[in-house]
Amino acid sequence: MSTLLELHNVTKRFGPVEVLKGVSFSLEAGEILGLLGDNGAGKSTLMKIITGIYSLEGGEIIFSGKPIPYPQHNPREARALGIEMIYQDLALAKQQDVAANIFLGQEPTYRFLGFWPMIDKAKMETAAQAAIARLGARIPSVKYPVGQLSGGQQQSVAIARALTFNPKLVIMDEPTAALAVREVEHVLDLARELKRQGISVILISHRLPDVFAVSDRIIVLRQGTVVADEHTAQTSMNNVVAHIVGAH
């Protein structure tokens, strides 16, 4: 296995609040990493630094052997590198249809009248349909506004968007929080499938059994620092919970 992602001493503050106080860890290609921690531990912030929503203050992040250039790094660059994230609030445009959301920022185009690039709706809808079908999700039509779909269906749209352009790393921030049991199983199966394809996954979840079921390794973040970095097979839920609440 080769190392895909390395974080060295990453720090970040929002005004006076030091949210990340020197975070270091690494992630292998095809590895599923469970990222755990209490609310406000800094998990989402750390992931948003990787995807270029925020810059970092100190430290370094290396992806595929190359340092990510902060502060120029941005979501477009992250996607070009093969980093995709399913955001905690899904970050979907609710009045736009399913196809539009899946291809957001990467719409296929054709040249209208030979010179004017226009969105190729037919191609986009076919591909969106296929992407949804691959996930085994059921959505009445890719022409539906996303806001009219159920929580689970919206989740599928967010996942489909993350998988459409062959990512190397997929970050899932609380992907199962709003889902029914059957849908949770789907997401976990998906994480395993990505691993099988050699894609790395960072899974953030409050549901410990889910994380234990799929992850190779577990990292616990507490008040902006890594307090545990253990192989899933060599730790226990009790141990992890103790780290999360700071009982160690």
């Binding site: 995807t51 477009r76 994230m85 445009a93 957001l104 920022g105």
Partner: peptide, 12 residues
């Protein structure tokens, strides 16, 4: 619709 959706998908 959702400025965050635009940002995270790389729209400037």
């Amino acid at each position: 619709d959702n400025e965050m959706a635009a940002r995270v998908t790389g729209i400037d």
